[in-house]
Design a protein around this nucleic acid. Structure first.
Ligand SMILES: [Zn+2]
Ligand SMILES: [Zn+2]
Length: 629
DNA sequence: AAATGCGGGTCCC
DNA sequence: GGGACCCGCATTT
């Protein structure tokens, strides 16, 4: 990619360290001078600091359906993800999208939702909940803590399910009357989708770029914590793949075929007085962090940016009442077990009923850890500021004291299947790849293979219609009426087959560009990558027979191999992903999401793809296809 | 009717 | 003891 098209991270800017220097459980949290922009769809472990004036933060809001959970700590509000309401038949709406409604937060209301007929008029399926098991088999959790001048947010886990519909959409439906087919809403939604990008830019009369650059001068802090795990479940011997940083053990593919696409928000509630109501933000563009960094992690969720809206076309059947009551609402005391083709763990106890469908991994939750940072504590006088009654300080885990880790289940065994096989069957371009060696899900080889396939595909077809991110397949597709605007379909739970079908029918502008870094890979077992192809800064990781991960910045022309062998001392056991770079994300392309400063996509050592913004920060690229644009 | 918070109490590890 | 949950209560929207 040409630099002219992309904004590269300023290489000259020394990365500020960006790991959050606080943990929600710390007895005292540092005072911060910079705040994050509101992030409605945070995903992955991260810590954010919002200004005390943030309405969204005050509401402890989230795009995800989060419900309050009692953590017996009055100082920290904890919420857990309810997953998403999907059609039991995994049908596709007329517009090709899947059903993914927002689970009601209220237990009672949620129970009523389940079992109701699928909103898709032509489908005989029933709504069921796709529980979240993104945090070591348990739902992703959000923590909120208030101080006099800021609201601290921390999330644990990576959602392993599509996003539920936007809260506003859900509310709209409710107000329209859930008992009837709501054509009006469908129309509304469809229209919104079509106009998504326009709305985005028009909303509040601001352009995304303006918002990012000017309106919101806050920088970010999201330090992400720990991005996903470096190690695959399998490799770890299992249990959880959550090592050095935090557990993200939810990476197992499933056979579910849900298609999730991002949605953009509309329905802005501009009335400030109505703060409790969902105020959808459209102005949440990825913000960059102020730091770049090194090995880690600060990243920004790009979600808000827009990609989330989905125009769904639902027809609501008469809900006549409870068709039946699911006995459970799927909450687990223990992680769900899974049986996907991905690593399977054996567990001894059973889980609640039928969540069976979702495979699980079993892992123990990691518990948070803390670390005392030298930062000056914020004056905590307020009630929220009091030290948590229960603070745990677990620094036992290795390297990153700040990241909670999951404890492996010692009794579990690992069963590994070959995901690549599955993929090659359903994905066209995969067939272009060389013979596939047996791979373990999540292993370096696995990723390396994907990269190679991508390269092969690019060379052959010149286009990448879809990409993969670890175990996930993602798809980028243009909207119906606006070729210029692309929607990103996270394929977290979709079957690859479905994805392929969708892709073949609707995608036509998914270009894979830039294999610059990939070409630098010496081999499948020893791969290096760069954060940026700009100037002299870039880092790489080395994997292979070596035992070191080097995430330092290196000079562009330095010898990768040589660099690979020294430093850092990160045990090989903690490194399982190679560091392939995926490609440039051109800013000139009209993509709803990062019209602003994103420039480059890359995969970090933890297997998470991110967008590197102009400021040197990294935006989480949860919604981006692995190989995109 | 739902969304949100709170917090007692249970279950399991 | 800690984490996940169930549940009822109360307040708001
Ligand atoms: Zn259906
Ligand atoms: Zn979730």
């Amino acid at each position: 990619m040409s630099n002219s098209h992309c904004r590269l991270a300023p290489s000259g800017v020394p990365p500020r360290h960006h790991i959050a220097d606080w943990d929600i459980n710390d007895s005292s949290i540092p005072r911060v001078s910079e705040y994050n922009r509101w992030e409605e769809w945070t995903d992955g472990h991260c810590r954010l600091v919002y200004p005390a004036s943030s309405e969204e933060a005050k509401r402890h809001a989230s795009g995800w359906a989060m419900r309050n959970t009692n953590n017996h700590n009055v100082h920290i509000l904890k919420k857990s993800c309810l997953g998403v309401l999907v059609c039991s038949m995994r049908c596709s709406l007329p517009n090709g999208e899947k059903v993914h409604l927002r689970p009601a937060i209220c237990d009672k209301a949620r129970k009523k939702q389940q079992g109701k007929p699928c909103p898709n008029r032509q489908c005989s399926g029933r709504l069921e909940i796709l529980a979240c098991r993104g945090h070591c088999g348990y739902p992703v959790t959000h923590f909120w803590r208030h101080t006099d001048h800021a609201i601290f947010f921390q999330a644990k886990g990576v959602h392993d399910h599509p996003r539920p519909e936007a809260k506003s959409t859900s509310e709209a439906r409710r107000s329209l009357g859930a008992g009837r087919r709501v054509r009006g809403l469908a129309v509304l939604l469809a229209r919104e989708a079509a106009l998504g990008s326009k709305l985005l830019s028009l909303r509040e009369g601001k352009q995304p770029s303006e918002l990012d650059a000017d309106t919101n001068p806050r920088s970010l802090l999201c330090p992400l914590d720990p991005p996903p795990p470096l190690i695959s479940d399998v490799e770890k011997g299992f249990s959880c793949s959550c090592p050095p940083f935090e557990c993200i053990c939810n990476r197992s593919p499933t056979s579910q075929s849900q298609l999730h696409h991002g949605t953009q928000y509309q329905h802005p509630h501009l009335d400030p007085s109505y703060w409790l109501q969902e105020h959808l933000q459209i102005n949440a563009f990825p913000y960059h962090q102020d730091d770049s960094s090194t090995a880690t992690n600060s990243y920004f969720e790009d979600t808000n940016t827009g990609t989330n809206v989905c125009p769904q076309q639902y027809d609501f059947l008469p809900l006549g009442g409870e068709l039946f009551q699911p006995e459970e609402i799927f909450q687990l005391d223990q992680p769900l077990k899974s049986q996907g083709y991905a690593p399977i763990l054996q567990q001894d106890h059973n889980q609640n009923s039928d969540i069976a469908r979702s495979p699980p991994m079993l892992l123990d939750l990691g518990s948070g850890t803390i670390h005392r940072s030298p930062v000056k504590p914020e004056p905590e006088s307020a009630y929220w500021m009091l030290p948590p009654s229960t603070i745990t300080t677990d620094e036992s885990n290795s390297n990153s004291s700040r990241f909670p880790t999951c404890s492996p289940d010692t009794t579990s065994t690992t069963i590994v299947t070959n995901p690549m096989e599955d993929m090659s069957r359903s994905i066209g371009f995969m067939s272009q790849c060389d013979p596939l060696p047996p791979l373990q899900c999540g292993t370096p080889q696995d990723d390396a293979m994907k990269i190679q396939c991508a390269i092969a595909s690019k060379q052959t077809a010149g286009l990448m219609e879809y990409g993969m991110e670890s175990d996930r397949v993602k798809l980028q597709a243009p909207t119906n009426d606006e070729q210029s605007r692309l929607l990103y379909y996270a394929a977290v739970n979709e079957s690859r087959t479905d994805m392929h079908e969708v892709e073949s029918n609707t995608v036509n502008s998914y270009q894979y560009d830039d294999s610059y870094k990939l070409q630098n890979a010496q081999s499948l077992s020893e791969t290096v990558g760069c954060d940026s192809k700009s100037e002299t800064n870039y880092r790489f990781n080395c994997i292979g027979n070596e035992t070191v991960l080097d995430t330092r910045l290196h000079i562009k022309d330095s010898n990768f191999n040589a660099q690979c062998h020294n430093e850092t001392g990160t045990p090989m056991s903690d490194i399982h992903y190679e560091y392939p770079i995926v490609g440039m994300y051109c800013g000139d392309a009209p993509m709803g999401i990062n019209s602003a400063e994103t420039a480059i996509r890359m995969q970090d050592p933890l297997g998470e793809f991110r967008l590197q913004c102009g400021e040197g920060g990294y935006h989480s690229a949860t919604q981006f296809a692995h190989f995109q644009h």
